[in-house]
């Protein structure tokens, strides 16, 4: 009885929290099915016309391809660099280790606007080609701390005797790394890479400085459309993105466990 009333007392708060968290997502998905020409809730019928429109809009489809390429490349680059760094930090002792580990997290702490501006200027000086190279490098920096943290926490619980066992069994250090270490930490590495993919796929703030007409990503298109006028097509596009990201997250969860 008291347990039940105790739980009832929480209901308004729970409702509020889940409303704040989930209504924005639900409403985007719902309005993508409207029959109106404005993004209203589909109270007077459901249609897929905005999806049809979406898949005829070459610009959007191009952006989808660009985003996928960028996110995949970011996942690979951030995945490799993040894993290498985490490995180094866990397996060595040196002065200022904690401070340097905190520095690895700096891209999390500095506004992506500044990262974007700084990278654009620097990329210009260094003549890093505009478009894919700049966007991918910038995204890999933004995603790096996440991969680093995830792989590091897995490595901290890695049983180093597995490596000893491998070496005793005749594998040298490099063979051991490929046959034992990497396969064992692979789930964490892949989970980190999926997070990097998701971060890159949704990144807007830094990306807005770096895109070119031929390498415009989906979030940039969504932002521009929000600014210029509302069409349910944005909802359809956003919903497509949600579906992709949820699939990726489920994949990540499955591999991580």
């Amino acid at each position: 009885m008291s347990r039940l009333s105790g739980r009832l007392a929480f209901f308004p708060a729970i409702l509020l929290v889940y409303a704040i968290l989930l209504i924005p997502i639900v409403i985007v998905i719902a309005t993508s099915f409207t029959v109106q020409s404005a993004p209203t809730l589909p109270t007077d019928g459901v249609s897929l016309e905005w999806y049809a429109e979406l898949f005829q809009n070459q610009r959007l489809l191009d952006a989808m391809v660009v985003s996928t390429i960028v996110a995949s490349a970011t996942a690979v680059v951030a995945g490799i660099i993040g894993t290498i760094t985490a490995f180094g930090f866990v397996r060595s002792e040196f002065k200022m280790k904690e401070t340097l580990a905190t520095i690895m997290l700096l891209p999390l702490m500095i506004s992506p606007v500044i990262t974007g501006v700084a990278f654009l200027r620097f990329g210009g000086y260094l003549q890093i080609p505009r478009g894919y190279p700049q966007i991918i490098l910038a995204h890999s920096i933004l995603a790096l701390p996440f991969v680093f943290l995830i792989v590091r926490s897995r490595l901290l619980t890695f049983d180093e005797r597995l490596e000893d066992a491998s070496m005793i069994m005749g594998a040298n250090r490099l063979e051991t790394t490929f046959n034992v270490t990497i396969p064992v930490i692979a789930p964490a590495m892949i989970a980190g890479m999926l997070i990097a993919f998701v971060i890159s796929f949704g990144e807007f703030t830094a990306t807005q400085f770096l895109v070119t007409p031929s390498t415009t990503t989906v979030p940039i298109i969504i932002f521009n459309q929000i600014q210029t006028g509302l069409s349910p097509e944005i909802s359809a596009l956003a919903t497509t993105l949600v579906v992709i990201m949820v699939i990726v997250s489920i994949l990540g969860d499955w591999i991580g466990s």
Binding site: I25, V28, I222, A238, M245
Partner: peptide
Amino acid sequence: WIAIIIRYFG
């Protein structure tokens, strides 16, 4: 897991 821009849009 969902892009922040989509949530603001929502």
